[in-house]
Amino acid sequence: MDNEHITWMERTFDLAEEALKSGEVPAGNEVNETKNATRHAEIVAIDKVLKFSEENKLDSKAVFRQCVLYVTVEPCIMCAGALRQVEIPLVIYGCANDRFGGCGSILPVHSAELPSLGPSLQCISNVMAERAIQLLKDFYKGENLNAPENKRKVKNT
C-alpha cells in the first residue's frame, strides 16, 4: 500500500477520533442539523468539492476524477452510488459496514454493471481495520443515532 494513502488515512482517523472525543457528531456527517438522513459525510464531501470547484473556476468533473476518498467505514449503498455518479475513481476505507455497505458488504454497488450511473468505483478495504473497528465501538458507546459514516477526507491528488 502506498505510503501516501497511509498518511492520509492516519489523518482521517485522527480527525474522526478528535471529533468523537469532543462529543461532536461523526466528522462530516450532518444528518441531525439538516434533518436530512441522506446527509452522510460522503455527500457533504461531494458538496464541498462542487463548491471548491465553483469558487476556483475549475471543472468539477475533472476535479472529482482526480480525487481519492478516505473514509474509516465502507460507504453505504447510497453513497457508493453517489461516488459513482460524480465519478470519483477510488475509495480507501478502514472496515466493512455490515448494516448498509455498498462496496460489497450488502450490495456491490461499487463494481456492479450500472453504466448510466457512472464508471465503477475502485475500493481498497481493510486499511487500519482495527483502528476503524475500535472507532466504531467507541462511537456506538456514545448515544448518537446516526449511521456509522464516521469520517471522510477527500484528497485532491
Binding site: 436530512n36 438522513a37 441522506t38 453505504c76 449503498i77 447510497m78 453513497c79 457508493a80 452510488g81 453517489a82 455518479q85 448498509f100 455498498g102 450490495l107 454497488v109 456492479a112 450500472l114 453504466p115 448510466s116 450511473l117 449511521a147
Partner: peptide, 25 residues
C-alpha cells in the same frame, strides 16, 4: 429510482413508493 435514490429512501424512512416506468438499472 436508481440505487442511490432507493437507498436514500431507506435512510429517510419513506412508507411507499409509486413509480411509472421501469429503468433497466
Amino acid at each position: 429510482p436508481c440505487i442511490m435514490c432507493a437507498m436514500a429512501l431507506v435512510h429517510s424512512r419513506i412508507s411507499r413508493v409509486f413509480y411509472g416506468s421501469p429503468h433497466p438499472e
